Lab assay of single mutants.
Amino acid sequence: EPREEEAEKYIKRANGDYDKAQELAKKDGNEEIAEAIKEYKKR
C-alpha cells in the first residue's frame, strides 16, 4: 500500500522514532501519512 510505504520512509528518516516521523509528515503537510504512522505505531 502506498500510504504504508510513505509511512515507512518517514519512520526511516526519523531513525525509527515514530513520534518524530509523525511530526516530519505533518511538517510536509501529509496529515494522512501522519495518521498512517500512528496506526503503524500501534502494531
Rank of each mutant, 00 (worst) to 15 (best):
E8R: 13
E6P: 05
Y18R: 03
E5V: 12
Y18N: 02
E31C: 07
E35R: 08
D17P: 01
P2Y: 15
K9Y: 12
K42S: 12
D17W: 02
K42N: 15
A21T: 00
K27D: 10
E8G: 06
R13G: 06
K41V: 07
G29P: 01
E32F: 08
E39R: 10
A7W: 10
E23R: 06
E35F: 07
I33G: 03
Y40I: 15
K9T: 08
K9I: 11
A7L: 14
K38V: 10
E1I: 13
R13I: 12
Y40C: 04
E1F: 15
A25M: 00
N30A: 09
G16Q: 04
E4D: 14
K41E: 08
R3H: 14
A14N: 02
D19K: 07
D28H: 04
L24R: 03
K38G: 09
E5F: 10
K27F: 12
K41Q: 15
K41D: 05
G29E: 04
K9F: 09
G29H: 06
E23N: 06
Y10P: 01
A14K: 00
N30T: 03
R43F: 11
E35A: 10
N30E: 09
R3F: 15
G16E: 03
P2M: 14
A34Y: 07
L24M: 14
A25K: 01
K12W: 10
E35D: 10
K41M: 09
N30G: 04
E23S: 06
Y18A: 04
D28A: 05
K9E: 14
I11L: 12
K42G: 09
K27N: 12
E8W: 13
K26V: 13
Y40N: 04
I11V: 07
Q22K: 05
G29R: 04
E23C: 04
N30C: 04
N15T: 04
E32Y: 09
Y40K: 06
I33L: 11
R43G: 07
D19S: 06
E8Q: 11
Y40A: 09
E5A: 11
K42W: 08
K9L: 09
E39W: 07
G16M: 04
K20H: 07
N30H: 13
R3L: 15
A7T: 08
D17S: 05
E23G: 05
E1S: 14
K26I: 15
I33R: 01
A36Q: 11
A14W: 00
K41S: 11
R3M: 15
A34S: 07
A21Y: 00
A7S: 05
D28I: 01
Q22A: 10
I33N: 01
K38E: 15
K12N: 11
N15W: 06
K9V: 10
A25R: 00
A21S: 02
E1T: 13
R13H: 08
E4N: 15
K20Q: 09
R43Y: 12
A21W: 00
R43P: 05
I37C: 00
I37N: 01
E6C: 06
P2A: 14
P2S: 14
K20E: 07
Y40G: 04
A34M: 09
A21N: 00
E39G: 06
G29Q: 05
I11K: 01
E35T: 09
D28K: 02
A25G: 01
A14C: 03
E1K: 13
E31F: 15
K41R: 08
L24W: 08
R13E: 13
R43T: 11
E31H: 13
R13K: 11
G29D: 05
Y18V: 06
E31D: 14
P2W: 15
R3E: 10
Y18L: 09
K12T: 09
E5R: 11
I11C: 04
A21V: 01
Y18T: 05
N30I: 04
D19N: 07
K41N: 05
E4A: 10
E6Y: 06
A21D: 00
Q22F: 15
A14T: 05
R13W: 14
K20F: 11
P2R: 13
L24I: 06
E32G: 09
E31W: 15
A34W: 07
K9R: 11
Y40W: 11
E39V: 07
E6S: 10
L24H: 05
Q22V: 15
A21P: 01
P2F: 15
Y18E: 03
A14F: 04
R3P: 12
G16C: 05
E32T: 08
Q22P: 00
A34N: 04
Y10R: 00
K38L: 13
K12R: 11
K27R: 13
E5K: 12
Y10S: 01
K27W: 10
E8C: 09
E31V: 12
